[in-house]
Structures are given as C-alpha cells and as structure tokens.
Design a protein around this nucleic acid. Structure first.
Lengths: 343, 343
DNA sequence: TATTTTTCTTTACGCGCGTAAATTTATTAT
DNA sequence: ATAATAAATTTACGCGCGTAAAGAAAAATA
C-alpha cells in the first residue's frame, strides 16, 4: 500500500498511467477495457485504496446499482428470513441492496418508497403491507420504478408478483388433516394485517365444501402485528368458551398458532397426535420459530428459496432488458407440508 | 398540484420566486430563512413535488445525514427489535438510518463498514459480531467515522459503548433462583458466537462462588447462529446423559433456552415451578419469543428502550458537537428480572 | 430619518464523475 | 508492408447542488 492518498478519479488515473475516461469505463465494467489496461489498473488498485465516489457516480448515471427491498415488518423473523435470502442474491448479482421495513405502518411504507425513489434505484422488491397499504400511492411509485411484488399481491400493481400458493397449500393441509383425523376448524383474525389471510380463509371454505365437510371459522379480535399475543388471547377465549366444534385447529399463520399453543399449554390441554392428546394444531408459513414450539408445529412451508430466487431473477430481467414487461406475470410456488408433532 | 415539472433547484427557485442559494439554505434548515420566505417556499412545495437530489447534496456536503446501523444477525428477533427501535429514534432526529446486517459473517461485517464509509455517514451504530470480528479493521473504521458500539463491546474501539450489564443481570437471576429453589447449573455453548457469553459465564462463576455454592457449567458443541437447534441438541445430550447435577438450569441466552425447552418437552420432562415439575429453566435476553414458550420463559430483560435511546443520544452528541469524545465512555443498563412460569 | 443589522440576490466556482466527439495510438487482418 | 479495426487519449461539457463573496434590499434599532 502506497502512502499516496488518492482523492479522485483524476488522481487515480494519473497514478495508474491511464486516462480518466478509461478509468471510468473500467469501474463501470472491467471487461470493457483491454486486458493489459485492466491489469495495469488492478495493479494500481493494490498499491492504493481508491474507490469511486458513489454519490458522483449515481448523480450522473440514469441507472444506479441500487436495489430496494421493502418488507412490512422486519422484526417478524419470517420477513427477516426472506429478506436475508434476497439480500444475499442481490449482492451476488453485483447490486447494492437497500433494505427497508415499514414497521407495520401505512405511512412509513410510502415514506420508504419515497426515500427509495430519491436514490434512483434500478428496481424495487416490495412486500406490501397489504390491506392497509396506500394502494394508489404504491401504484404511482410502480409507474416510475420497476417493481416486483412478493409475498403479498396487489392486483395489477407492479411488473410481476412472486409468492406462495395459498390455495394449493391450504388444500394440502386440509387434505392431510382430514385424512389423519377430524377435519379442521379455521382460526384467524377478524381483521388481519397480513393480506394472505383472505386467500387462506377462502381456500379453507372452498376446500372444505368440496369435501362436503362442515366449515367452522373462529375469528378473533386484535389489531397490529403482535400476532402471538392476539392468538393467545383468542385461543383462551375460544377454549374457555368451548367454541371449538372439533379437536383439530388450522391457524391462518404460525404466529397465531404459537400463541394458541401457549394458551393450550397453560390451560392444560395436550396438543399433538397421540390418543392422549386433546387437540391437534396446524398452521401456515413455516415460521423459523415453528421448529421449536412445544410441540413442534405442523405447518406448510413457503418455498423461501424459490420465492427469493424468482423475485430477484424477475427484477434483474426487467432491469437488464431495460423494458417494462408486456404483461404482468404472477408466479406462485407450492407450499410444502411440514409434518411435525402438533398435528 | 401544478402540472409544472420541476427538474432541479434552479427551476424550483424560479418557480417559487426565491433565489437558489436561499432555497438551498431552506432545505438544509428551514429556520435559517425569514418566516415569510419560508412560508413562500412551503406554499410552492405544495404546488409541485420537488425534492433536492440526494446524491448532489451528499456529494457536496462533508457531512451527510446518513446514520449507519450494523447488527450481527438481523434474522434474530432480538436484533430486529433493537434495530427497529433505533431506526425509529434516528428518523425522529431527522436522520436517515441505513440498516445493515452482517448475517453472522466476519467478512460481510467489514464489507458493511466499507459500504457505509462510501456513503460518508455522519456516524455509525455498530453491534459487532464479537469474538469473530476483524477487530483491527473495525478499529481502523472507527478512526474515520464516529462510531458508537452497542450490545457487545470491543475494548477501546469506538467512541463509546452502550449495553447491558451482564454481571448485574446474572447475579440478580442467580439470587432469584437460589432464593426460590436449587442453585442453577449454567448451560452455554463451548464456542459461542455471541460475545456477551463470556461475561455471563464469568458472572455466573463469580456470583456462585460469592455465595459459596457449587458451580457447574455444561458446555455444548455447535457452530453458527442456529442457537435453538444447538440448544436442543445440547439439552438432549445433557438430559439423557444425566449431566445435570441439579434441577435448575440457567441458559446463557433465551435462544438456547428455547431449544432446551423443546428438548425437555419431547423427553417428557415438565419444566416449571410447581412441585410436579422436574426442572426449572431460566435464561437471559427477554427475546421476543420467550414470551410464548411453553412454559413461558423466566428471563432477564435487556432495557431495550434505554439502550436504543442512549446509543442514539450518544452518536447525536458526537455528530452535533463535531468533536471526537475525549474519553471512551461505557454505559451499562441494568437488566430486569422477568418472572414467568419456567423458573 | 439615519444607521445598523439581518436577510436575500447575484455571481461564480467547485465537487467527482459520466459521457460524447475527435484524434491518436495500438492491434489485427489482408 | 499497408489497410482496417479496435482501443485509448484528449478535450470539453454537463449533472444538481454546496458555498463563498459582494452588494442590494428589507427589517430592526437608534
């Protein structure tokens, strides 16, 4: 490492014996210069620690290498997990991920998009809040910036949607539950923050009626993203009030189920498959925590890897083709039944 | 909203009838211009949607309004929670939080710092990986950028450290456990990724010897951040191998305890306070999930609010004073005993 | 009203880099 | 060798804004 302090591209060009425009091209794409020139520059880079000013670069290029990721609630390990995978793929593709969480707040979601717009991202991967999203504002954003929605869909918004097939997943679970025991009661929030909930309820109703089974839905009260607590309270109420018409419960998502399991435990109900058990509980998401509940939670896994990969691939195609897609494409990945001890 | 498309500050200045340098000052600090001028500009802003180009701003200012946050593993709800709080405080202070996760990877931690350096942040809040951190690289970074460490300390690095008092917390828990039952066995990883682990072991040994109680430490194998799985396996081994000399277990952190509880459940051991229980299990962190384990986990809470607030206050002081602190200050907040059903 | 102070306008330069056009130099093909 | 092609250099301008200096205008003070 030379003691030479290089302050800008001009100086680095002089230092390396190459002209500045060529240096500029080199940093944009090392393969766009001759091999000997590239090697000369690489050797120069080893002798000092110059890096182009990111602000100056982005100011002058129409297209940055920034790629926004917006999730509704990062403190939820489910989103943390999917975001982690997406980040990794983006870095591997040579882009810079900018991860933002809306913290469950409608206004913050729009502010996140605004602050992304300000950094001229090449594209954005957006998992919207869903029901509480300001749809028209999101729509407007998508007109300016190539955006791929994931996890939760908003009809017609964005260039594409990548997500989980709630219908397939729900029917697989119902199939499994009815085959191995009593058909399930559906347990959900009356007014869920998560937009997949609606699809799951509908899928439950359809699947059950197709099998000519009695449907029962327990809708619990609660606001916000404290789903475990909401699930716990709802379960206590439902169990004490003897609202469960059957001994199998299918929770709309794992976090509600985690609360449900806590309630069952505290009320002395044994959850599981055995003949000595009072209840079976299953859910949906394969939330990281569901691995370690007591008992371990039978659930349906999102195909995290496929969803992350497809989301990134889709936005990359959009960016590199430079065109907006002709038609909005929806890709759904099948869920996978994860049989564990709870059902 | 006027249909006028404003492309830069020049045009906005003309549009609002104020000179460009004054507009510049206005965006930097609205109170630095006369009231009537400010109102004139605010009214103009309502009639169009101009916002200064963030890259041009940052290119020319020595000090940006960017504030970096680096955490070791964002998929861990503990860090997600503390990051969420810090983000909120930073936004409230009028700065732009840039949240980065090292995903448990030493190299990525340094890359995160490098990419932060590239955006000239006003300051950085860093929760280092700890034992596996590249300390000399972090040290070098701290020379260039005002940095406050939080959660886990590296002696002498950064302007200040804000964290949790592991000694106080550990001794409070041991006090509680010995008062209400058998003294605890300590359960931890042999080679923990989390740097607080060392302090907690030391605190356990000291507290126990002060009380003239027999110490027993069970050190389990495992690598990486899958702490629940590691805790589960270690617990199965310890229980089956009858390694526990007493019926009270104090886990080094909640995530290990979550795995421990799963193991106990599956092995048919009842955890809790009652006379019908086989084990008591307690831990450390008040991890969001610990609220809903079966049984609910007795633990020691970090003072999340205070740690977040003090971290942000400290870095703000550094930034706004413009000076580096004379002496490195360490602030530790007391943990709070959270009594729940497991111990 | 005259004077001082504050605020604004005008003018001008610089930040670090992208990028285009014209020219020179190096490489490859004939 | 010469011609054709590819790559690098020189020159020059622009991006959108920060910022400094000098003077004009407005507000506050005497």
């Amino acid at each position: 490492m030379d003691s030479t302090k290089i302050r800008n591209m001009e100086e680095f060009a002089a230092f390396s014996g190459v002209s500045r425009p060529t240096v500029s091209r080199f940093f944009h794409d090392p393969d766009s210069v001759r091999r000997v020139t590239r090697e000369k520059l690489e050797r120069a880079l080893e002798r000092c620690d110059y890096r182009p000013n990111i602000f100056a670069i982005n100011q002058n290029r129409k297209l940055t290498k920034n790629l926004g990721i917006v999730v509704p609630y990062l403190a939820d390990p489910f989103f943390a997990e999917i975001a982690r995978r997406i980040e990794t793929l983006i870095i591997a593709a040579g882009y810079r991920p900018i991860l933002l969480s809306s913290h469950g707040d409608t206004r913050l979601e729009i502010e996140n998009l605004d602050s992304l717009r300000a950094i001229k991202p090449a594209g954005v991967l957006l998992a919207p809040l869903g029901r509480s999203s300001d749809i028209s504002a999101i729509e407007k954003f998508c007109l300016d910036v190539p955006t791929v929605l994931f996890d939760s869909n908003i009809d017609g918004v964005g260039e594409a949607f990548v997500g989980h097939d709630n219908f397939q997943a729900t029917s697989v679970m119902i199939e499994y539950l009815t085959r191995t025991g009593e058909p399930p009661v559906f347990f959900e929030m009356r007014d869920p923050p998560n937009p997949n909930a609606g699809k799951r309820r509908k899928a439950y109703l359809e699947s059950m009626s197709k099998k000519e089974l009695d449907q029962q839905i327990i809708q619990i009260d609660g606001d916000g993203w404290q789903l475990e607590e909401i699930g716990y309270r709802g379960a206590v109420k439902a169990i004490k009030g003897k609202e469960l018409s059957r001994s199998t419960v299918f929770c709309s998502n794992d976090r509600l189920a985690i609360g449900f399991l806590t309630a069952a435990y505290e009320l002395g109900l044994k959850v599981g498959l055995g003949s000595d058990c009072d209840l079976r509980v299953a859910a949906h998401d394969n939330h990281p925590v569901s691995h370690f509940t007591c008992p371990r939670l039978t659930t349906i896994s999102h195909n995290f890897a496929a969803i992350a990969q497809k989301s990134v691939d889709t936005i990359m195609d959009l960016i590199e083709s430079g065109e907006r897609s002709q038609e909005r494409k929806t890709t759904l990945f099948d869920g996978e039944l994860i049989m564990r001890a709870s059902a």
